[in-house]
Simulated assay, not measured.
Amino acid sequence: MPPAQRAGILCNDPRFQAFAAMRTGYPGKTFLPSAAAEYVRLTCGVNSRRLLNTNSAAAERFAALLTEFDAHTGKIARPHR
């Protein structure tokens, strides 16, 4: 699945919306999909999620964001520090 499509689906996930709210300083809140999309755009340094398909640096930042979210939700193990 292309990164832009994955980002669109992710922004509609209530768990990701809560994660994005927490990461931006609003713990205990849940963002709407539009706010989650803005979080993805800001985090990845793009003005459109569509650019995740063509901008390799942004795609790498999105992949890192997905890894952080997967660790947050327990889908993957958190790295030991």
Score class of each variant (00 low, 15 high):
A18L: 00
A18C: 01
A18T: 01
A18E: 00
F19G: 00
F19R: 00
F19L: 01
A20V: 02
A20H: 00
A21Q: 09
A21G: 07
M22Q: 07
M22E: 12
M22D: 03
R23C: 06
R23P: 00
T24N: 06
T24V: 11
G25P: 10
G25D: 13
Y26S: 11
Y26H: 15
Y26W: 06
P27Y: 09
G28K: 04
G28P: 02
G28Y: 02
G28W: 03
K29Y: 15
K29D: 15
K29T: 09
T30Q: 14
T30I: 07
F31W: 12
F31P: 00
F31Y: 15
L32G: 08
L32D: 12
L32H: 06
P33E: 03
S34G: 05
S34F: 08
S34E: 08
S34R: 13
A35V: 03
A35L: 09
A35Q: 15
A35P: 02
A36W: 01
A36S: 13
A36R: 00
A36G: 06
A36K: 01
A37N: 13
A37E: 14
A37I: 08
A37G: 12
E38S: 14
Y39H: 13
Y39W: 08
V40H: 12
V40G: 05
R41S: 11
R41A: 08
R41E: 04
R41L: 04
L42S: 14
L42W: 05
T43G: 03
T43S: 09
T43A: 11
C44R: 02
C44K: 02
C44A: 13
C44D: 05
C44W: 01
C44I: 13
G45W: 06
G45T: 06
G45F: 04
V46A: 14
N47A: 13
N47Q: 13
N47G: 12
S48F: 10
S48N: 14
R49N: 04
R49I: 05
R49L: 04
R49Q: 03
R49D: 01
R50G: 01
R50V: 02
L51A: 10
L51Y: 10
L52M: 09
N53M: 04
N53L: 03
N53T: 04
N53E: 08
T54K: 08
T54P: 11
N55M: 10
N55P: 05
N55I: 10
S56R: 06
S56Q: 14
S56A: 11
A57P: 11
A57L: 14
A57E: 15
A57W: 10
A59F: 02
A59R: 10
R61L: 09
R61I: 02
R61D: 10
F62V: 11
F62E: 03
A63S: 15
A63Q: 15
A63D: 13
A63R: 15
A64V: 08
A64W: 05
A64R: 09
L65M: 13
L65P: 02
